[in-house]
Each structure stands twice: as structure tokens, then as C-alpha cells.
Design a protein around this nucleic acid. Structure first.
Lengths: 344, 344
DNA sequence: ATCCCTCGTGTAATCGATTCCACGAGGAGG
DNA sequence: CCTCCTCGTGGAATCGATTACACGAGGGAT
């Protein structure tokens, strides 16, 4: 592969001049410029980003460590992150932690070894030691979706409290009183917060959240299935199951289906995180939608600010409730079927 | 950040010795080894992968350029690719082309600039010029899922022909005769092949595939919606719509729903690519499942073979039909509802 | 005792870029 | 005509690693 030396030789100039042309430095003659460009063209030369990074000590690359790529929420987040980063002239390397602390640590380590300019993290647990070291050492870093209390790093996330309250109000109005939640791992902020918000909202309606109605999940579908089975085995099963993410809702749907029960007639279901498929599930699932794309973009902007020496601020965006049929109410925007028309 | 020089100084040895310890070169004394290791520990030293790559001319990184991360099929592929690569000691940088040739070219270019050791591509169109150059220049490369005819690069893909034949047989047996397809872009192999396989299978049953029943999609949900609306507007709409990927099936579902029609009563639906959500859609969608994980792993093995100087072979794995209810037959594994039991 | 190997180590070249500094040519101003 | 700038250019140091080569010490064989 042609190097800058080959270009210099072909153009009959020094590497310094070639480099100047390539970085359009002002002081280079038009003649030299055209000769260099011609040589570049002729050789199909492309600068070696590795060498350049070594010299300039910047890779123009951001690392993104997410909890689970298979989760549509994170996929969308990753996508918007890459888009915004590209717009700002950065590349993104994604590390998938699969909700496993050891994998998270692995990815943080390799990203740091590659000397990425900044790190975007959605921590799986309390945070890998390597990550905390990096944060302390001043590596530009931003938490997205989840964060770690006590670490001085901007946080870009969405606040679901109001939406959860709306959800509980909605459920209460439908007559549901026994509400259960499939929680995320207590080690994650989102895991804790969603339970807290749910409990607080229940209290506002004079309802309790008994221990038996808090199932411990891990944000993966399988745990949603397992927890839901536990709920169904209870002497007094809940009337509603609220899954703290979309995958656990999928697992819950699996469990309900396996018993031959129906949603919402036998048990109602709601989920945190809205995804396209929820429109087409049987029944369509009521969910709390985060402004995922905006979250990803805001996180990148905050991180790039830090990388380039500007402050870089935390951002909190509101989530909102999207009512569908999985909790019992008819779809608010029913298809134009002129047959039945039930007025609530 | 501490460099190898700092470690050498701290250990009272030369950088050469430090390097030898780090790469466990045989000729280094136990004493030196312990001193180096102690210094590494004390300084929290981590080798600079950028510098190492420059010197050794290898990055231990693979590039993966996929057509669309938001498509669960590709997400799963990406995940298995990363897993296998990690097991083999490589990292993966993912580039999302979003079915756009210009983006594909952008990612190929930046990956090549970073001097990745090998490239895994699922080409969006006929292939970006940069990619073809790289292939010709001998950059280790493997096509996965889709490929480009006439380019001498191993291909790892799945063959859906038999499964499509099974699907058509299934549909025929259910009494369907007017079958339509939402095709993928003609520039992609998967786009063409699926139509060809469908047409061939129809012919085996003495059926035609009229032009009006071939809708041109682009593997994105929106195109599936648009094409399906066209089908429904036909004087004689098809009885079955076969979507060439899961996202277009989602769009088709959108279109059918918007008209207030039902699947499969009013129109049947089937899709290429099986995903978890198809179990829970209304109704569950009959689909052709690819061995996605195995595809990703095989592709990485083939690519790493090439990177490390071994041959690296093409692999073709069979897809299989998964029958659900969207074409009219009852679910083959119904939930334990002891009521109806139809023997085919 | 001499020679030769092996072993452990250090010096320095190298990878491909960027950039500081020096230098010569040419123009402007005195 | 001399001085001083500015401009375009090249030489060489540098980033942080790896590795060829050189070298001295020590042990075994003769």
C-alpha cells in the first residue's frame, strides 16, 4: 500500500510538502498542490490513519459500550450515535456487553487500548474498574441511558417518572389494582429507577407494591418469561405485569402464551421502551417510549464537546406513554372497521 | 498516559526488554520479568495499540459492513460475528450502510484507512468502487449474506431455495393460487435470488408470477407498506404476500392493518428471515429462518483464515421453513387449548 | 587455557504520518 | 544596494511500539 513517501517521490517533493497539501496547510504553492494531488490520484494513495493517530494523539473515534445490541432500544441508540458522530467527523466503535460485566470490562479495555478519543457508556453494573479509572484519569466520557452515581461524568438519559405515573393512572382507571413489575438488575440505575417510579405512582393511587409483585429480571427475554411464570403461579396473581424493558415484555408474552392465557383478558401487560413491533403484537403493547434517537445524538454532542475541550452537559429528556390494547382499553386509533364501536 | 519508556525507566531496564516481557519472548530473565511486571502494575501501563499496529502492520481488527443495523437479522449476524471474532482474538468495527451505497462506500473507506486486517461485507448494491479495488488489491475479504458475482471472494450465505419451495408447497396446499412477492433491490443477490426461487417454486406447481405480483421493495419497512397497498389496490389482489425480508413484512402488516383487513382471513403473509417477534405478532408469521448465528461464525472463520494466510472457504447453509398462522393453517404447536384439533 | 554457544540485555532502525526549524528566493522599503 | 519579511520548501525529530543486531558474561567442550 502506497505511503506518503511514495507520493512524495512520485511528485518530486518532500513528504513535508505532501503532508501540507493533504492537510491543506496555507503555505504551499499551486504547482506543488497539483503535482501532489496528481500523484495521490495516480497511486490511489490514502493516508494511514494508524500512523496519523500515533503522531497526533487523536483517533477521531468514539467508543460506545452498550448493554445489549440485540435489544432494539440499544440498536436504535447505537444507530443514532453513529449518525451524529459521523456528522461531526467521528467514527464509532461499538462494544456489546450483553449485560455481562466481564464483557463490558473487556470492551472498555480494548477501546482504551485503541486510544479512542472519548467513551460513551451505558454501564451494565456498578461499572468496571477500568472504566472508573479512565473516568478519574480524565478520559472524555459520557453516560447514556444508565449511569453510575458518584462518578463525575455527564449523563444523557430520559426521565420516565411522569410517563410511569401516566401509565399507572391509565391502569387504575381501567380498574386494575394488583400491579406487578418485572424489574431490571438492581445494579443498574434504570433497573432501580423504574421500580421506584412505579412504586411511587402506585402510592399516589393508594396502592401497595408487595414484594411478591416485584420480579427480579435482567433485561433479557428469558428472565421476563421466568418471572412471569412466577407471577402466574402466585395464589393471587397480579392483574397487570409491567416489564421494565421490551425484551422482558417479550418473555412475558411467551410465558402467558405458553399457559394458553390471553392478554389483556387474563392478564394485562405494559412495557418500558417502545419498539415498532409492539404495534403488531397480539395484542398491541402499551409502552413507555423514550426519545431514543435524540438521546443518542445528545450524548454524542456532549461527548464531542468534552473531547474538544468544551464543557459537555448532562441532558434529561422526558419519556411518554403510548397506550395500546394490552391493558384492556380499545386502541385509541382503531382501524376503520365500521363494525363495533365500543364507547368506554 | 504511561508509555513503554516510563515502564522501562521504572523497572531500570531498556524498552526492548520491557517489550520482550510484554510479548513473552523466551529470552528474558525471571528477575527482569518480575521487575517489568511490577512496573507495569505500578504505572497502570497498557500498551498503545495504535503504535503497535503501526509497527507490526496488523490491527487485529475486522471490519463488518452491513446493510442495515436496525434489521434484527443483521443485528444478530453482527452479534455472532463479534463473538466469534473475539474468541479468535480480533475486534470488530461495524459500519452500517443503511442500504445506501454512499454510506457503504464511506464505511469501507474509513475501515480501510484504519488498516483493518480483513473485511466482512454484505454489499448493498453492485459494490462500492473502493471495495472492489480492495478486493483486487488482495485485502482479505469475505462476503456474507449477499455477494457480488464475478468478484473472487469467499461467500458465506444461506440457500433459501428449498425453504421457498417448501413455503410455496405449504401455500398451495392451503388453497392459495394468487401469490405475490415484495422483492428486495435487484442490485442485491438476495433481492434477485428470492424472487427467482419463488418464481421457480410457483412454476413447479403450475403457477405464474405475473409482473403485477412482483412489488419492488428496498428491504425497509416503508417499502413493504407501499408495495402492499399497491397489491391491495389491484383489481384482483393476491391471496398471499411473501415479503423478502422481515422489515418489509412489518410494513405489509402496517398496510393490511391500516385497511382494517385481517391476516390471514383477508390476505395471507409470509416472510424471509425469522425473528423472535414473529411468534407474537397478530397473527404469528410464517417465515423462512436462516441459521444466522452459524452464518456469522462461519464468515469470521473464513475471513480469519484468509487474514492468517490460510485458504478460507465459501460456505452455504440451508434455510428452513417455520410454519405459523399467518397463511391460514393453525399453529403446528398450538397452546394447550383442548378445543379444536384439525387433522390436515 | 582457549574457543564457541547460549543467554540476557541494550542500541538503534523502523513503521507512516505531522510539525518545528532552517534556509533560500524574491519582493518591498529604505 | 542592503535589509528585512514573507513564502514555499526540505530536513529531521517525534509519537510508542517491535525487532535485527551487537555485545558481554558465563558455561561446556576440547
Amino acid at each position: 500500500m502506497a505511503s506518503i513517501k511514495d507520493v512524495a517521490a512520485a511528485a518530486g517533493l518532500s513528504v513535508a510538502t505532501v503532508s501540507r497539501v493533504l492537510n491543506d496547510h496555507p503555505s504551499v504553492s499551486p504547482d506543488a498542490r497539483t503535482r501532489v494531488l496528481a500523484a495521490v490520484e495516480a497511486l490511489g494513495y490514502r493516508p494511514n490513519a494508524v500512523a496519523r493517530s500515533l503522531r497526533t494523539d487523536q483517533t477521531r473515534t468514539l467508543g460506545l459500550v452498550i448493554s445489549d445490541v440485540m435489544n432494539p432500544y440499544f440498536t436504535e441508540l447505537a444507530r443514532s450515535v453513529e449518525e451524529e458522530a459521523r456528522a461531526l467527523g467521528y467514527s464509532v466503535i461499538i462494544g456489546n456487553a450483553d449485560e455481562r460485566p466481564d464483557l463490558q470490562d473487556h470492551h472498555v479495555t480494548t477501546l482504551l487500548d485503541r486510544r479512542i478519543d472519548g467513551l460513551l457508556v451505558s454501564p451494565t453494573d456498578g461499572g468496571s474498574p477500568r472504566m472508573l479509572d479512565a473516568a478519574r484519569a480524565g478520559t472524555p466520557m459520557v453516560f447514556v441511558d444508565r449511569w453510575i452515581p458518584g462518578v463525575d461524568v455527564p449523563v444523557v438519559r430520559s426521565d420516565g417518572q411522569a410517563a410511569v405515573r401516566d401509565l399507572v393512572t391509565h391502569l387504575h382507571r381501567l380498574g386494575h389494582r394488583r400491579l406487578a413489575i418485572i424489574a431490571g438488575p438492581a445494579a443498574t440505575t434504570t433497573g432501580r429507577e423504574r421500580v421506584d417510579a412505579f412504586r411511587a405512582a402506585l402510592r399516589e393511587h393508594g396502592l401497595e407494591l408487595p414484594e411478591a409483585y416485584i420480579g427480579q429480571g435482567d433485561f433479557q427475554a428469558e428472565s421476563g418469561r421466568r418471572v412471569t411464570e412466577g407471577f402466574l403461579d402466585l395464589p393471587e396473581p397480579p392483574e397487570v405485569v409491567f416489564a421494565a424493558d421490551n425484551l422482558m415484555a417479550l418473555g412475558a408474552l411467551d410465558a402467558v402464551r405458553a399457559r394458553g392465557l390471553r392478554v389483556p383478558d387474563d392478564i394485562a401487560l405494559a412495557a418500558f421502551d417502545d419498539i415498532r413491533w409492539f404495534v403488531h403484537t397480539d395484542p398491541p403493547v402499551t409502552a413507555i417510549a423514550q426519545p431514543t434517537g435524540e438521546l443518542g445524538r445528545a450524548a454524542v454532542r456532549a461527548l464531542v464537546d468534552r473531547v474538544e475541550g468544551r464543557p459537555g452537559e448532562s441532558v434529561t429528556l422526558p419519556a411518554r406513554l403510548v397506550v395500546r390494547r394490552s391493558c384492556g382499553e380499545p386502541d385509541p386509533a382503531p382501524p376503520p372497521s365500521p363494525v363495533r364501536r365500543s364507547t368506554s
